[in-house]
Design a protein around this nucleic acid. Structure first.
Length: 507
RNA sequence: GGCCCGUUGGUGAAGUGGACGAACACACCGCCCUUUCAAGGCGGCAUUCAGGGGUUCGAAUCCCCUACGGGUCACCA
């Protein structure tokens, strides 16, 4: 790969240069897949697809304390469930592996040795206390705290002396800036940082582990990353990275800092605002389609203004420059609306597949459901899916198909079971008519009811509402004849009789 | 505190000097459809783009200042 001598960054590639595009998503496994992280990953994925490039999944696990294997698995699972794939990474491998920073330690070591040999980095023996004191002093003077440069020009003898004391050094990058650092950001334009803001920052910790900045830049350079698309919180850190890339003799990638996602109270989204991870949303009954679609909508609008789209549909026209500059507020209400949309428009079999684990958990389906059980579940899902917003609500909405009616909705009783004797009599007549209905279909049950309603000279609702309450215990649900058909003749009549008994006991 | 980023309705947002007397979607409020609830249809919902100055024949769009919000200044990522 050639180096652009003066260029500090690569331009957004034209179609001809698409081959070169390489992006990465680099989560640290200190938690599950956060909704903000997901969106960043999605933007990376789209950019790679749009330009026919590659996306790599790298794991930034240099934080030994907080990195957990279970979190890694959770992240991987999340992507798998959402249908997001990577071209290279911890699972798929690739030519630039390993893809886990904890396995790349020799690479960082080598990079450090190179920098030290070139005089671009040096060991620093200052203690945390010394540094803290200097920081406080500078802050008190209203200045940006910067490393005072104590160990910058230590003689070999001085170094030996500190080593002899048993001090474990950190390594700092020697930063000498005579002009501002310009960060080329596709979303925000050129961002200029004054040179006096940067100091000799730590690149390798005293335990020998690289800092995030160092590991990240070494990896991005070695993995030939061309575009870094990441969260906005990194924008302020970017000058450090630019300086690092230069020191490493690597081309500086182009950046795109995507805005943060805020909670409804306009503060940073966190656990106290409810679900924030893909895993949690999954457990709440949200579909992958909705989660992906909604995440993308937070800060991105396609040129045609459409809001409902699949990930792949967005790829051909995806444009980083269209990403919003300002943070977006997460609105669960809209997510619910979108989830409801997918619940009723996705192929029924698909919805069934998503619902199956929920049905099993509720005890409505066995571990190994047979075809008949599946078919029944399918029909019931079809009947209620357009009136619920999540899978959890869906399971609740079909509950009375799977278990007897244990109670009648209170408001429903007040309204439709108001005159027990009269209602009981109507239901008795209805049960009697239904007993004679054969075959048991939407048309035949309705015909029987319509006839009875006409004979009694009452409104349809006067019979239908009590019937719904009797059959489901609820005041809302699928069409009443649909309900009867799904329940079956025997069960319909049984429930009608149970309601009649209940009413008589109260008459 | 320094530096950096941002600010269009309750929310997501379109908008890159004239078609803006500001699209679209969610939410909300009406009406219609209807056995219920949904879904769907129709209509309403920013006299104005954080505030103030400029530039211009003309500004939500360009410039400056102020306010507010956020990020960052770690041997966390």
């Amino acid at each position: 790969m050639h180096r652009l001598s003066d260029a500090e960054s690569r331009p957004v590639p034209s179609d001809a240069a698409d081959e070169a595009v390489r992006v990465r998503f680099a989560p640290s496994p200190t938690g599950g897949l956060h909704i903000g992280g997901l969106r960043t990953a999605l933007f990376n994925w789209l950019f790679a697809r749009r330009h026919g490039g590659k996306i790599v999944l790298r794991i930034d696990d240099t934080d030994r304390e907080r990195s957990k294997e279970e979190h890694l698995r959770s992240i991987l699972n999340g992507f798998r469930w959402l249908g997001v794939t990577f071209d290279e990474g911890v699972e798929e491998g690739g030519p630039y592996g390993p893809y886990r920073q904890s396995e790349r330690l020799p690479l960082y070591r080598a990079a450090l040795e190179r920098l030290v040999a070139e005089g671009k980095a040096y060991p620093c023996y200052c203690t945390a206390e010394e540094l803290e004191e200097s920081r406080k002093r500078q802050l008190a003077e209203g200045k940006t705290p910067r490393y005072p440069g104590t160990c910058r020009n230590l003689t070999p003898e001085e170094r030996a002396a500190r080593e002899a004391e048993g001090r474990k050094p950190v390594f700092r990058l020697k930063v000498d800036l005579d002009r501002p650092v310009v960060v080329h950001d596709v979303i925000r334009g050129d961002v200029v940082f004054p040179p006096d803001q940067l100091d000799d920052f730590v690149i390798v910790k005293s335990d020998g582990m690289p800092t995030y900045h160092f590991a990240s830049c070494v990896d991005d350079a070695e993995m030939r990353i061309t575009h870094i698309i990441r969260a906005e919180e990194h924008l302020s850190n970017t000058p450090r990275h630019v300086v690092l890339f230069r020191a490493l003799g690597a081309p500086v990638p182009t950046f795109a800092h995507v805005p943060m996602i805020l909670a409804p109270d306009r503060t940073k989204l966190s656990k106290r605002h409810g679900a924030t991870s893909v895993e949690e949303f999954r457990a709440l009954g949200f579909l992958p389609e909705a989660i992906v679609n909604y995440s993308l909508l937070l800060g991105y609008t396609p040129e045609d203004g459409s809001e409902l789209f699949r990930l792949e549909e967005l790829a051909p026209t995806f444009d980083l420059a269209r990403i919003a500059k300002h943070p977006a507020v997460y609105d669960v209400g809209k997510l619910r609306w979108m989830n409801a949309h997918y619940l009723r428009t996705l192929p029924l079999e698909r919805v069934y597949a998503y619902a199956e684990p929920f049905f099993k958990a509720a005890g409505y389906l066995p571990e190994e459901p047979d075809e008949a059980a599946k078919k029944t579940a399918l029909e019931r899902i079809e009947a209620v899916r357009e009136r619920v917003a999540t899978l959890v609500e869906l399971v609740d909405a079909v509950s009375y198909f799977y278990r007897p009616v244990e109670a009648y909705d209170e408001k429903g009783v007040a309204k439709h079971f108001k005159n027990p004797a009269e209602v009981a009599e109507r239901l008795r007549l209805a049960a009697e008519r239904l007993a004679a209905v054969e075959p048991w279909t939407l048309e035949t049950t309705e015909a029987a009811y319509r006839a009875l309603i006409a004979e009694l000279g009452i409104s349809g609702g006067a019979l239908i509402h009590p019937t719904r309450l009797a059959l489901s215990g609820r005041t809302v649900g699928p069409g009443i004849f649909h309900l009867m058909v799904l329940l079956g003749k025997t069960e319909t009549i049984r429930r009608l009789e149970a309601a009649i008994d209940w009413l008589k006991a109260r008459a």
